[in-house]
């Protein structure tokens, strides 16, 4: 049986003060993992300059690097520039789509994007009332719909969803419950459950917990740097598929 070794981290929040620091921790990653997933909030202010710092820090690793953006990476309206800079540096950036890589003969599908909030079943916003409220909820629904389509089209033995926002409440424990609707949405979990993902990686909740599970049984891991407290976490999936 072939194990897939998935390294994952989020919320690295790189800026000029941390330039070169994170890279040191990625040495020898190829001996520990087959792929590195980065779950958003790569920068602090979302500037093009910070995007270049992130690209410098993550480029040229001996294993594939797949990333999504987070809310901080949108702050300066330079998100498209950041995506392009990262792609030019050989980093795959998922933007509500999916990709497949073959690792040790196993086809690993990775789907996702930034995600968004809205809250969790029974305690969430709905598309009702003012246009601003509707737009907020619609944004998440449309993202979840795109993820479902992307996962449906995947031809893979194993599937991982990579997101910035959380699909469940469990991994938010430690954050004030009042802000849960800004930390994630059950619609993201519903998409992963419907299409049968094997693992859901996210960040965003710095004070949350690492482990959770979706209502449909998909394992969830919050890999925000302040949560995992290591340069990255490594999760092993057996490559036999479902």
């Amino acid at each position: 049986m072939t194990d897939l070794r998935i390294a994952a981290v989020a919320d690295i929040h790189l800026g000029s003060d941390l330039s070169g620091q994170y890279r040191k921790r990625l040495e020898d990653i190829e001996h520990r993992a087959d792929v590195l997933l980065v779950g958003g909030d790569l920068t602090r202010h979302g500037t093009a300059t910070e995007g270049r710092i992130v690209a410098d820090e993550l480029h040229g690793l001996p294993i594939p690097v797949i990333a999504v953006l987070g809310n901080h990476d949108y702050h300066s309206d330079a998100d498209r520039k950041i995506v392009q800079t990262l792609r030019d540096a050989g980093i795959t950036v998922l933007d509500d789509d999916a990709m497949t890589i073959t690792v040790n003969g196993v086809r690993l599908g990775i789907a996702g994007g930034k995600g968004f909030g809205g809250g969790f079943a029974g305690k969430c916003a709905s598309e009702f009332g003012e246009p601003e409220t509707k737009a907020f909820v619609r944004h998440t629904r449309e993202i979840a719909d795109r993820w479902r389509r992307a996962m449906k089209d995947l031809d893979a033995d194993r599937t991982i969803v990579l997101s910035h926002y959380s699909p469940v409440k469990e991994t938010l424990m430690g954050e004030p419950p009042e802000i849960y609707p800004f930390l994630g949405s059950y619609l993201l979990a519903e998409a992963a459950d419907a299409e049968g993902a094997d693992l859901f990686i996210h960040g965003h909740a710095h004070a949350g917990m690492e482990q959770g599970v979706t209502p449909g049984g998909v394992r969830v891991r919050n890999v925000a740097l302040p949560v995992i407290k290591h340069a990255y976490a490594v999760y092993c999936l057996d490559g036999e598929g479902q």
Binding site: L199, R219, K229, H230, A231, A233, V234, Y235, C236, L237
Partner: peptide, 12 residues
């Protein structure tokens, strides 16, 4: 936050 070397892997 102290960013430590990667730790033990978790088998899912």
């Amino acid at each position: 936050v102290e960013v430590r070397e990667p730790g033990e892997e978790e088998h899912l």
